Amino acid sequence: MFTGIIEEIGTVRSVTPGRDAATLKIGASAVLEDVRLGDSIAVNGVCVTVTGFSREAFTADLMPETLKATSLATVKSGTPVNLERALRADSRLGGHIVSGHIDCTAMIRSKRTEGNAIYLDLTIPNEFSAYLIQKGSVALDGTSLTVFEAREDSITVSLVPHTQAVTILGSKKPGDRINLECDILAKYAERMLQPFAGQKNGVTFNTLQKNGFA
């Protein structure tokens, strides 16, 4: 579990391809302070397991599904990546609950600057639009952000100067693909309400109250 508060920008040292898989070696410092084998680290929002480490880098294996579903399939030596260690139970939850399981990739359709903010308009697959609402939370390349505007096939987010400085999002450009994870609470709510979807009167307050939702 993560918070979407990026700890540092690491650099891909190498990508070793395998049969429908790959091994990443990533240069880092902050996330290695207390690292152990088997620890979880989010790389551009993707939860990976540490399989080896030194004082300057760590390695992680990428499964075929990870390469199919995320933008990590396109990284190469020298690519900067957002890094975050797994959340500790005694830590502040500064962003929102992020699982590290990517739902889809979004493509930047436009980028503009207004004052000290950068606005990114991103195209998203239609099937995920229900989980993205105005003022709701979304994780982009592992970064916890607020949805500025939500539409059927796109969203807009705003990057404050701090986010521009400590994550890779500020350097992204139109056409780039970004890992997107929807708010997991929205997905759980949908799943819990599915049994009531076919009821004649739909979901009412009495239904929610009777089943412990209100």
Rank of each mutant, 00 (worst) to 15 (best):
D39T: 08
E84F: 03
S154H: 12
G100E: 04
C47S: 13
D90N: 11
A69Q: 14
A86G: 08
V31H: 03
Q164W: 02
R112G: 05
I133K: 09
S99C: 05
Q134D: 14
A106G: 15
G10E: 02
A42G: 09
V203K: 07
G175T: 01
D20S: 12
M1Y: 06
G45I: 01
A60Y: 06
Y119D: 07
R55K: 15
I102Y: 12
F196A: 05
A150Q: 05
T204V: 05
M192D: 03
Y188S: 02
D183Y: 04
I41K: 06
L72R: 06
H162R: 10
L122V: 07
L140M: 05
G78I: 09
D39F: 11
H96D: 11
T156G: 00
S171A: 15
G38L: 10
T70G: 09
L67V: 04
Q194H: 09
E127G: 00
G52Q: 14
R177D: 04
C47G: 05
N201I: 02
T66N: 07
C47V: 04
S29L: 05
A214E: 02
T113E: 12
P125Q: 00
M107N: 13
K172F: 06
K68W: 05
P17F: 05
A139V: 01
S158G: 02
I168Y: 00
N201T: 08
V35P: 12
E149R: 13
G78A: 07
G94A: 09
V157N: 01
M192L: 15
Q194R: 10
G95K: 04
L159A: 08
